[in-house]
Design a protein around this nucleic acid. Sequence first.
RNA 1: GGAGAGGUGUCAGAGUGGUCGAAUGAGCCAGCUUGGAAAGCUGGUGUACUGGCAACGGUACCGAGGGUUCGAAUCCCUCCUUCUCCGCCA
Length: 423
Amino acid sequence: MLQVSYIRENREKVLERLKFKGFKQPELVDSLIGLDEDRRLTQIELEKIVSESNLGARQIGELMRQGLKEQAEALKVKTSAVKEQTKLLADKLANLEGKLQTILLQLPNLPHQSVPFGINPDNNVTVFEHGQIPALPDNALPHWELGVKYDIIDFELGNKIAGAGFPVYKGKGAKLQRALINFFLDQAELAGYREIQPPIVVNEASGFGTGQLPDKEGQMYHIGIDNLYLIPTAEVPVTNLYRDVILKKDELPVKNCAYTPCFRREAGSYGAHVRGLNRLHQFDKVEVVQIVHPERSYQVLEEMSAYVQSLLKLLELPYRVLSLCSGDMSFTSAKTYDMEVWCAAQARWLEVSSVSNFENYQSNRLKLRYKGEGEKPRLAHTLNGSALALPRIVASLLENNQTENGIKIPAALVPYTIFDYIN
RNA sequence: GGAGAGGUGUCAGAGUGGUCGAAUGAGCCAGCUUGGAAAGCUGGUGUACUGGCAACGGUACCGAGGGUUCGAAUCCCUCCUUCUCCGCCA
């Protein structure tokens, strides 16, 4: 959520950046500024009257103590009348605040200066590529067929017990999952991240805190009876750990990581491009989250990007890094890098990580702040990234590493799988 | 799930309708004291919105949200949560 004070003081720039992002309702900015003006005037008026009636109440108390009942009664009548006015103003104020909030929730984050302009994914800019695209034999199989061939991923069984998009991993397939999770967590720890094991359901307040609610409600599984949501990413619980928190300045940066299953309804997305592991309702992911000083957030974004790339290098997967264009970035991000791995049999790039700097857009909503000695609390900057999401990594490993002897496991992973081939 | 008792500032802990944003103690910060420290003494020590160049004000916040009242930490309602006992259970 953008700060009202920032919008008020930087109207031109906000409008320019929103246009850059392709935001279609720039008129909301001026509505917001108008409402804010109105809100402040109303508040001043209300507080003046409340102040008066507070004074009256205090005087009544004083009179009562002195036993001057009649004077107290007279003053009561007067004060009651003042109070009537406060009701109207309080309603008006609440109404204005509601409208203000509604608009604020509709305004996306402002893209950083370094974000390339664009309106769709075609305008994303490849900023880095690494690794050789492997040449596969003609009889190469896509991962969903390899999964069946080696009896390690069973989509039909998952379909039977849960539904489409809930695969069952078996034998070495299951062990590969576990190996990847441990590998990612160990790497994260080496990079200075503290491991968190959060709940994988969250309440409404948490959903609002990271912005899944109210807009993306349909994207999450909802447990109606207890009004809880299955998390779509560990970002939700791990970032909400810091909701309404004021950190000491020297506690920054906060670096947390977490492995969790993630649940996404993905309503309406079916078809060939979401086959196999490409898009699932349940998948495993290790997420890294940082809370940093505002002056450091762009440096940290680069560091996080480099960290994710280091994982891909260790897994020996060909990848590229995209700087998302203004129009393709998520609603809440100020700058995002996507990491995509090459899936040889499908002959396409698949996104396995998205690393974003939210600046203070999330922390404003979360009321996540930091404070130095004798300073005012200030909003911190938050960043997060997948490190990494498993299914597409598995897809890429299977497709790229298929040999006549089976699927070759990259050396860095062998200590975790204990086997070096799936066959 | 049933019965009961609680939730107050950084912490401990008073406060049951009227100068209570909140006693007291501890902690923390600053000053005094000291060669230095401890002890002692003095002062300070929350957040948000808002007015003001500032000094300094206003309003709100005692788990959350409503309500009663001229006035609520204190009374009423709903919810959350913690503890104890019982039941159930990985």
